[in-house]
Design a binder for these strands. Structure first.
Lengths: 97, 97
DNA sequence: AACTCATATGAATTATTTTTCATATGAAAT
DNA sequence: ATTTCATATGAAAAATAATTCATATGAGTT
């Protein structure tokens, strides 16, 4: 399955959204259920579910069922190298404070 | 100058936009004036100037004057490592075709 | 099978980004 | 100093994305 160049902006929409980046940061520490994430980053459930759907869609997170809860975890293989680079460069990136 | 975590989404807004990623791709080959970019990626001048302002703002591109023309070039130090990772992973990223 | 708890989904609203278009600026040439 | 060519800017309109809220689904419990 080959992909067109110039489609990666769809992936980066996820990193361009503060709630989604907060989810990613939270999941860097450990896998969590939706309600745990919600409590941790103080985002309401439905909003979170929409954000998670988008992250899932681009394979940034994956999930598994545990009882009634759905556990989300980072798909580290794809996202961690990018996060490393961000950590390294983010202070130079932008003139925003 | 220290920067807050969770602000890097502002940087990634640039990569989340197809015109901006096209500009980046074009400038990977060589530096170009606005009108050259415009011709190359078939984007109208004013739209391009707005996009370039945003890229400039986040230090993704820089520019210099050459006669009447303004030459844009990639700030490779910050963007190239990210592009490398994108090239490596982009086929896995997303379920879009 | 009815109930509860956890999460997902859809549609309408709201907010944010992009696009467009008219105009301003700025460098070089006359 | 006026004109021309190249680019930038601002504001309104259009497009797109995020939020909200009501409701659906689905796993486990009774």
């Amino acid at each position: 399955m080959k992909c067109k160049s110039n489609t990666y902006h769809i992936f980066f929409r996820n990193l361009a959204n503060p709630i989604k980046t907060k989810i990613i940061s939270a999941l860097k520490e450990k896998e969590m259920s939706v309600s745990e994430i919600s409590k941790k980053i103080k985002v309401e459930q439905s909003k979170l579910s929409h954000a998670l759907a988008s992250l899932r869609f681009c394979s940034i997170v994956q999930s598994k069922q545990r009882g009634k809860q759905r556990i989300y975890y980072l798909n580290k293989q794809t996202i961690i190298p990018i996060l490393k680079i961000i950590d390294k460069h983010k202070c130079k990136f932008c003139k925003y404070k």
